[in-house]
Nucleic acid binder design. Structure first.
Lengths: 188, 188
DNA sequence: CGCTTGTGGAAGTGTAGAGTTCCATTCTGG
DNA sequence: CCAGAATGGAACTCTACACTTCCACAAGCG
């Protein structure tokens, strides 16, 4: 991601495809306030733009997670920070996780090796399980997917206008931690 | 849905699009073991097939839910039956919920009126909240979406081979009911 | 046996959108 | 102010896919 124009194109692509998967290149160009010709100069093939958008989105999400310091403090608190951090990069998440073919087709091609990319969220979950904070009857991978899934669902609600944006973190956190069942003596 | 051929086409469409959104009509025709010409005779326009597929998928899911008798017995038990029932119609669910544009564009066109279609799952959740079984700090709509989201996530895992099909109901149920946190004195 | 109906293969047309080419314009650094 | 780079408008080509047409074949049925 070198200059301003390229950055504008990639972020416009993420933003546009997040809300309208299947948007055409002219639409992306318009969203980026850039000519169609310019877009094609930077990304001769549609696939290149898709790849760049996925990579940038993953970078943004990764940075947000890192900033939440998932490896510090009580796992529950760390998880809450992570969820709050995700809320600030909702577009990137809606984009990458809104179409499983992206993660399935693009990411493998990008890096054909790398045994396990050392996911900090998985680390956090494992740590929480080891400390007896997270359910160790569930696999860490499942918990991670539930985290993504519930977060994504919340973003959908926000996009649809069914939920306020600032409620996301609280709702997701509460749902993750306690499920949907009522608890014994908890009013709030 | 009149005859055998039409049924074959619609179910093939659901099955194919569930695993490969963006499959072309020739692919659907092949999956249905039917000539491309025949497909076009039954559904002159692609949109008609999409609509028929969505409607049939919703019917199938609705029937499965009804069979689980969500309005009977303890809400927690009823919810478990519903989740188990959903597991048996995973393809229909992966299809309809794998592309939000389907629910957004197709369903409204199908029935331009109907204030609220009386969703039995929402009823179940409300009943559970009234009986103090489900968290009434969360909206029924949110709980419903979490139910769909977690179920969908589980199906994705199964499709990817990361989870055994017969584990779905148990895992989804446990996650929904307790969240991802460890509980006080619960070994299983 | 011939009529009707359902089927499907083959070879079309039409269109949307990706990718290209060319040239005029604007921006930027020296 | 000028040269080179970046930009973008316009008008292409090309390809995939939806949709159509026509004809042939097979099955059920009077």
């Amino acid at each position: 991601m070198k200059n301003r124009t390229e950055r504008a194109i990639v972020t416009a692509a993420i933003r546009t495809w997040a809300s309208e998967r299947g948007a055409t290149l002219p639409e992306i160009a318009e969203a980026a306030e850039v000519g169609r010709t310019t877009l094609h100069r930077y990304f001769p093939e549609r696939d290149g733009l898709v790849r760049a958008a996925v990579e940038h989105a993953l970078e943004v999400v990764g940075a947000a997670i890192a900033e939440a310091q998932p490896d510090t403090g009580h796992p529950l608190e760390a998880m809450r920070r992570v969820v709050a951090a995700l809320a600030s990069v909702s577009e990137a998440i809606m984009f990458v996780f809104g179409d499983q073919t992206l993660m399935r087709d693009v990411v493998p091609t990008a890096e054909p090796d790398l045994p396990t990319p050392h996911d900090p969220v998985i680390d956090l979950i494992r740590r929480g399980q080891a400390e007896g904070v997270f359910d160790d009857q569930l696999t860490a991978e499942w918990i991670q997917h539930v985290l993504w899934g519930v977060t994504y669902t919340a973003f959908e609600q926000v996009a649809k206008g069914s939920q306020a944006k600032f409620d996301v973190a609280a709702t997701v956190t509460r749902t993750l931690e306690r499920g949907i069942a009522a608890q014994a003596g908890e009013p709030t």
